[in-house]
């Protein structure tokens, strides 16, 4: 870890002021970074994947951005709400179970108590070649240096949304549930406040060093999840090598609006198998208007993985991802446990 300056922001303004107005921002390794729970930032600073000169602690803004609000129009989550706080919130659990479950199954209790929802959205991949700077081939860390994972151990890597530049997996869980429900993020930056569709926040794998469309210095302040008849009827299924404290091999966030056994609306996102939080629209349209049967669920899953590009060690994720989605769909429809 390199030496760095630490400032504590006590207002949005002071946070933004601390950011300054970077003229030629280093988007790979921003020289000024916000610090929320620190569970990701400090980890990557110790590994020297990130080496900011200045860190702005935003935990002082908790009174402003640390609330959970539920209205008829939907759910609003402040960026500084802790993962455990949202996972344990009775209203979230009742009306948005997919969100509560995705958070409750992530990381460990200790990390969930520290980590913020805003920080959670900005997770970086667990790919070893990215995290360990002694490796030489990682386009995400060093543009143009190649991708060692293509022919290395790639069991954990993605099959959807990948490119020849990068096959890393987005490791989080929460973002999947949000992407399924069509959430937007609210930000404030040097040029003012804006609201962005969360799915569009994550960039594709063509230029792996750039992960999001956040503007330099932009602060996430909250997440808005629109209400819908499907949110209550939702679940997050996460499949992994051990029962807890482990990233997904495959996961599915599913929300269904069912009427007399037929799917009026399906909202599906996939994790563990994809480069970024992955909305499975093809699967949604296969199900729309159809009865939720095993056969239709299987067809939807097949559609979701039609574009999968497996590698030597992760080919099983194509099968596992489909099975995970089928199981999640049947589970939400009450047809299996």
């Amino acid at each position: 870890m390199r030496a760095f300056a630490y400032i504590r922001a006590d207002s949005t303004d002071s946070a933004l002021r601390g950011m300054g107005s970077p003229t030629q921002p280093d988007r790979l390794n921003p020289q000024v970074q916000y610090l929320a729970g620190g569970t990701l930032l400090l980890d990557l600073m110790k590994l020297e994947v990130l080496s900011p000169h200045q860190v702005i602690d935003i935990n002082g803004l908790e009174s402003e951005y640390g609330r959970i609000e539920l209205t008829e129009g939907g759910l609003h989550l402040g960026a500084l709400v802790r993962m455990s706080q949202a996972a344990d919130d009775a209203r979230v659990r009742r009306d948005y179970p997919v969100i509560a479950q995705s958070l409750a199954q992530a990381a460990s209790a200790q990390i969930r108590n520290m980590a913020s929802l805003g920080g959670n959205l900005l997770q970086r991949t667990r790919c070893t070649y990215f995290r360990d700077t002694s490796w030489q081939g990682c386009n995400k860390r060093q543009p143009g240096s190649g991708c060692a994972a293509l022919n290395g151990p790639n069991r954990q890597h993605a099959v959807l949304g990948v490119s020849d530049q990068c096959i890393s997996t987005y490791p989080g869980d929460f973002a999947q549930s949000l992407v399924a429900l069509g959430a937007t993020v609210e930000t404030v930056g040097p040029t003012g406040r804006r609201s962005v569709d969360l799915e569009a926040l994550y960039r594709d794998a063509q230029q792996p060093e750039l992960e999001t469309n956040l503007l330099p210095g932009e602060l996430i302040t909250g997440i808005r999840v629109p209400a819908g008849p499907w949110t209550r009827n939702s679940a997050y299924l996460k499949i992994r090598d051990r029962v807890s404290y482990e990233f997904a091999l495959a996961s599915a966030a599913v929300a269904l609006d069912l009427s007399e056994g037929r799917v009026r609306e399906a909202r599906i996102a996939l994790g563990g198998v994809s480069y970024r939080p992955w909305r499975a629209r093809e699967a949604e349209s296969v199900l729309k208007g159809q009865p939720l049967t095993q056969a239709n669920a299987t067809a939807a899953a097949r559609a979701a993985f039609a574009t999968a590009r497996p590698r030597a060690q992760n080919a099983f994720k194509v099968e596992l991802g489909q099975r995970t989605l089928v199981r999640a769909l049947l589970q939400v429809a009450g047809q299996t446990s």
Partner: peptide, 29 residues
Amino acid sequence: LHEATQMDAHHARYVNTDLAGYLVPVAAD
């Protein structure tokens, strides 16, 4: 069911050298 040190065979280097990557059972297992 859990433990294995994985290797990059081209470089003869281990890749899962932390307790997030080198799995041992947690209490829930």
